[in-house]
Amino acid sequence: MEKGSFEVKVGLAEMLKGGVIMDVTNAEQAKIAEDAGAVSVMALERIPADIRADGGIARMSSPQVIKEIQETVSIPVMAKCRIGHFAEAQVLESLSVDFIDESEVLTPADEHNHIDKHASKVPFVCGCRDLGEALRRIGEGAAMIRTKGEAGSGNIVEAVRHMRQVQKDIKLLTVLGDDELMAKSKDLGAPYSLVKQVGKLGKLPVPNFAAGGIATPADASLMMQLGAESVFVGSGIFKSEDPPVRAKAIVASVTYYNDPAKLAEVSYDLQKAMKGLDMAEIPEGERLQERGW
């Protein structure tokens, strides 16, 4: 019997496709998320909009909160650890979380090295802004990729930028000749074997989800139409005026992303979305997406 292999890890990522993974900070929010139809919840100490507002060091959630969430919901429970903080990841593995997000939303612990994700039996998801970053993380063992967007901004523009970039980079690989792939691998800073594989497949070898700025059903539809296979919603739900209704609407919008009439229908009863930030209000150097490489 084989456990914790890459194939088993990617298997869970496959099951989450076409679903919504919601950020939650306690069991009560996790229950709201599950009742709304979330495929998974992501446990974190504070939601990204609050991390941005409050400042300070953002760390892994407390084991007690994670346990409470695990006891409350039946869907997979994910949790975030800091970039490079393999000790936090080990703690999360000992708690049997279903997926670990090595996340730029938390304060990085290592400015040079990401976690060796092959070493864990639990699957990892990591953020990226382009194909090179995605393939570096997959090379380290990530079983799922999400484009970073700008967490806690309520602004979809960065998520779109990153998803478009990844898709454009992939398209290019499919038309390059074998004799051009090594040079491309050098440009991307990505493992040659993965560059070759993506060129052949025309897609990432693991599921590719979108995150960072999704606040409305139409935002979720936009990301799905741009090629995301699922979405993560962080602040967008619990910073809105109507978390349960909005959560349910975003779940439906991922299934019916190609059906504008259905999107209008699920958006009908929504109250105000989170206020959100223009990117000009977030100076360079304070953007969460710049964390990690």
């Binding site: 084989e2 292999s5 049997s96 039996k121 639990v122």
Partner: peptide, 14 residues
Amino acid sequence: ERNAYGRQIDSFID
């Protein structure tokens, strides 16, 4: 019985 073999860490190939 749902999730009867445990959480993801107990997922397996046989």
